[in-house]
């Protein structure tokens, strides 16, 4: 036993552990569906590719383990251990507002410290353990095809769901006059802002193009009479009519809300441009 240890190449061993650590992390988050908290579903196939490459790299480097080296420094490898440490130790935290809009991510995190962060921690914390439970729902999310959803009105009203939120938003902002007065139904979270006219707020979803680092909030301005009781960042479902109006110098489509009900955060809170 002592002999084996003596012959073991620690340098190669550390590298092997690091590589396998990343492969394992990728595999576990794909299995649990946590991966969608980090990146666009389009990235998942690339992650499988990475796992395969890493495993091949490890396999081909296995003979190194027997070649003992002297005077090895481990300093350069510490930086590789850092992401592994935080990856396995800390649960992922979805963004409330865009990190790109700088400090707002801070504000968002504070705002959510009460209700929201609790449930996101508990839901994500359970993921690695009960990956079986999560599996069923995951298969749907990975069948993501990348095709353009068709924009069709249902019974004369526009219904925004997870799959077409971005496409409908683009369409309505581009041809807003064509949709003026139309009924609209949408789910999103509330973003309040001092620059908006009093009692107005934005109904937003986070648009992810590649990963969490590039999420930006998109959505509609909403007008609602009893909006002072609403809590910033809470999830709501609204029904209303689109009104095109001049808003602080810009012509914008605004949802005048008839009905507003609180709802729960969707399984996947991001929307994708393609």
């Amino acid at each position: 036993m002592r002999n084996i240890l003596y012959e073991l190449n620690l340098d190669a061993l550390v590298k092997t552990i690091i590589l396998l650590g990343f492969a394992l992390f990728f595999f576990l988050i794909i299995q649990s569906g946590q991966v969608l908290t980090y990146v666009h579903p389009r990235i998942v196939p690339y992650m499988y590719f990475a796992i395969i490459v890493i495993i091949l790299m490890v396999l081909f480097s296995l003979p190194d383990l027997r070649r003992r080296q002297k005077n090895v420094t481990y300093l350069p490898y510490l930086i590789f251990l850092l992401p592994l440490l935080t990856a396995f130790a800390l649960p992922p935290q979805a963004m409330d507002t865009s990190p790109i809009s700088f400090g707002s991510a801070n504000a968002g995190a504070e705002g959510s410290a009460g209700s929201r962060s609790d449930d996101s921690i508990s839901s994500s914390g359970s993921n690695i353990g009960d990956s079986n439970v999560a599996d069923d729902s995951q298969s749907d999310q990975y069948s993501y095809s990348g095709r353009e959803p068709e924009l069709q009105m249902i019974d004369g009203s526009i219904v925004l769901d997870d799959d077409n939120f971005y496409q409908w938003s683009e369409e309505i902002f581009t041809n807003m006059d064509a949709y003026a007065g139309k009924q609209i139904e949408a789910t999103g979270f509330i973003m309040q802002n001092e620059q908006l006219i009093k009692n107005d707020f934005a109904l937003a979803r986070l648009l992810m193009t590649c990963c969490v680092a590039d999420t930006v909030p998109i959505g509609f301005l909403c007008r609602y009479e009893e909006s002072e009781n609403l809590e910033d960042h809470s999830w709501i479902k609204v029904t209303g009519n689109i009104k095109v109006m001049d808003y602080n110098g810009q012509t914008l489509p605004v949802i005048v809300i008839d009905k507003l009900e609180p709802t729960s955060k969707p399984d996947n809170e991001y929307v994708y441009p393609y």
Binding site: F26, I29, V35, T37, Y38, V39, H40, I43, Y46, M47, P83, T86, A87, L90, P92, Q93, A94, M95, P99, C210, C211, V212, A213
Partner: peptide, 10 residues
């Protein structure tokens, strides 16, 4: 941490 890891993952 999430932003950091997501950049690395992609």
């Amino acid at each position: 941490n999430t932003v950091f890891l997501s950049i690395l993952i992609q």
